[in-house]
Amino acid sequence: MKFGPMKPQRRNRLLLVLFVVLAAASAVGLALSALNENMNLFYSPGQITAGEAPTGVVIRAGGMVVAGSVLRATESLRVDFVISDLQGADVNVSFTGILPDLFREGQGVIARGILGRDGNFVAEEVLAKHDETYMPPELVDVLPDSHNDPETFKGGTRQ
């Protein structure tokens, strides 16, 4: 093995390797930026209230369940609640069925269903979106309320 300038052949191969990686990266980068809107799993409440989400077709809506907004029907499994981005945009959601264990007020959810023209969302399925914070139950009372991160459901992409 020699130090000093690289052999031209090896330098060419190195350039080829760099070129392949850069070409692949830019191709995928362009494709992803073109697909950017479709890469999102769900619409935020901000996008829905701004009219950016289509009505009448199956979409996903995600947001924080507003504390105190959950209404359970007494005669059926129907649940009504409000999801919010905690930035002022709220969407009413109704769902009939069994909610996941982690569904609670103040936590994130993603609902799959149809947005009506009246702006109400009828969900067929509700998934719980939890955050990256983990802690033992006895710590919850001690720590400040850190798990409601409004960043998660703000409009646009998170940077």
Partner: peptide, 12 residues
């Protein structure tokens, strides 16, 4: 998890 809205939680 940072660029798009995903169901997966961000990194801890």
């Amino acid at each position: 998890v940072d660029w798009w809205f995903t169901l997966h939680q961000p990194s801890s």
